[in-house]
Design a protein around this nucleic acid. Sequence first.
DNA 1: GGTGGTTTCGTGT
DNA 2: ACACGAAACCACC
Length: 181
Amino acid sequence: MKIFLMSVSEISNSGQNLKISYYHYQSQFGQILIASTTKGICYLGFKNSIIDPLKELIKLFPKAEIIQQKSEIHQKVLEFFAGNTKSSFTLHLKATPFQLEVWKALIKIPSGKLSSYGEIARKINKPKAYRAVGTAVGKNPISFLIPCHRVIQSTGNYGNYHWGKPVKEKIINWEKDQHKV
DNA sequence: GGTGGTTTCGTGT
DNA sequence: ACACGAAACCACC
């Protein structure tokens, strides 16, 4: 069972006076970019033909000082990708209050399980806000750690994915396999 | 089981 | 004030 604690502190002001270290790494789902502040992970995205995660990072924190540099916390994330489920992480997020609610609800979905946008909406006590939930889930800046891939349509279709549907399917199947053993 | 129109809410502009 | 979207729901067929 995967249990990890996360605390979240908010970033206002587009990242002014903020120093962010980022680096590209390889994962079993493709190339990823991990970015962190001194407080925690602030961005984690997949690189593919359509998405340039570095561009997204800069767009998210236009005023921050963004430097290419490895860091210890990146290593912890890589271990997590490798299957070390004991780690705990601190996230340093820029978010609206609604997004924070949604992302916290995502963290509660156990590995290997799936949820739907409507179910998340009911969990945060706004059952009719499923459409807004979809938008909020899609803006999650930390893929994989915040398990946005575990949310699919109520019909059973996998629905869309910011980093491309194939990646979403890969991760879901991988997590399924982890629990078969 | 599938299609199409309607409902609904938070965001960015 | 307005349009959009990682959806859901209902009424048909």
